[in-house]
Amino acid sequence: MSDICPRIEAVRIRIRRAALAAGRDPRGIALLAVGKTFPAEAIRAAHGCGQRVFGENYVDELVAKAATLADLDIEWHFIGQLQSNKTRKIAAVADWVHGIDRLSVAERLDRQRPTDRPPLQVCLQVNISGETSKAGVAPEALPALAHAVSALPRLRLRGLMALPAPSDDPRVQHAGFAAVRILRDALADDGLALDTLSMGMSGDLDAAVAEGATLVRVGTAVFGARKPRLPSP
């Protein structure tokens, strides 16, 4: 794991260059290191490199790693698809949830958030490319969901999360991320003070930063190629 620090620094340099090229302040963009399938020791190593914000795609992985690494000051983000029967675990452990696309899930998180913890920070996932294989609220249904979630007292709606259809064409990448930003701006004009755009990964973070990303979710460029996930016992 000796290569994690150079990897993190390379990603930070990439974010900084993309931000400056777009006329943005790099300090307004956070690196969310995604540890999916990697052991807790890899998270600890990345923490030793100064990384403090980590994301997980699987509920049980996040819960286990949070317990193992409880001695570290880590901000935990859940970025996967959240099933209703696992909301209680996430409500108790996570600091952020990125993938909300149903009011029923938001309401469960709101009811189950422990009262001794601050409000759960949340982003709504938008299916910006209309892909049937991906989760996310349709753009036309977003305003109603956003206003309903913003009214829940134990949640704090921060912004939008999206996974545009993958493309190697920078123009296509920019168009997808720009569409998410436009949706966020429309919600702001409608009275919702949203400050977060969770978008961009290892292969397209440059375009995401150019179009306003404030959180980029990077796994492979930080931890290396992922190993297959073993099935749950």
Rank of each mutant, 00 (worst) to 15 (best):
L192W: 05
Q173A: 05
L69H: 07
S129F: 06
L155W: 01
A210N: 02
G80F: 03
D25H: 07
H174A: 15
L20Q: 11
V222S: 02
G219L: 00
E211F: 06
P233R: 14
S104M: 12
E131R: 13
D206K: 05
P233E: 13
R181A: 11
R171S: 12
S202K: 07
I15Y: 03
K65L: 11
D3Y: 12
A225W: 13
P228Y: 08
L103F: 13
S198I: 03
G219E: 02
E9Q: 14
A146W: 05
L124W: 04
A10G: 12
N127S: 09
S150K: 06
A138W: 11
P114G: 11
H77E: 12
P170Y: 07
I128F: 01
I90Y: 01
L31D: 04
K86W: 02
G48P: 06
G48E: 01
A138N: 14
K89I: 02
E140W: 13
D101V: 07
E61N: 08
D110V: 09
Q173V: 02
G212Y: 07
L157R: 02
L31R: 01
E140N: 13
A22L: 06
I29K: 03
L205T: 03
I74A: 09
C123N: 01
L69F: 09
P143Q: 11
E56N: 14
L192A: 04
L120S: 01
K134G: 08
L103W: 10
G224I: 06
I4A: 02
P143F: 09
L183S: 05
S232F: 14
A66G: 06
A162M: 08
S198G: 12
V172T: 11
D110L: 05
R17Q: 05
G23I: 14
R17S: 12
L109T: 04
S198L: 08
A165W: 04
Q173T: 10
L31N: 01
L187A: 03
E131Q: 09
F223Y: 06
S232D: 11
K36I: 08
V93P: 07
L197V: 05
D169I: 12
A64I: 10
D189S: 15
L120K: 02
T214C: 15
E131S: 13
A94R: 09
F177K: 00
R52F: 10
R44T: 01
P39I: 02
I79R: 00
N57K: 02
R117C: 07
V97Q: 03
A213E: 01
S104L: 12
I43A: 04
E140T: 15
S133E: 14
A208W: 00
F54R: 01
P231S: 10
I74M: 10
A178F: 10
P170K: 12
G48M: 08
C123S: 12
A138M: 09
E211V: 09
V137W: 04
A70L: 11
K65F: 00
L109N: 02
M1V: 13
E211W: 04
V11E: 04
L155V: 09
A30E: 08
P166N: 11
R229G: 12
L145P: 01
D73A: 15
D3P: 06
P26N: 09
H147G: 07
L187F: 06
E9M: 14
D168C: 14
T196N: 09
R184D: 00
T220I: 06
M1F: 10
A46T: 00
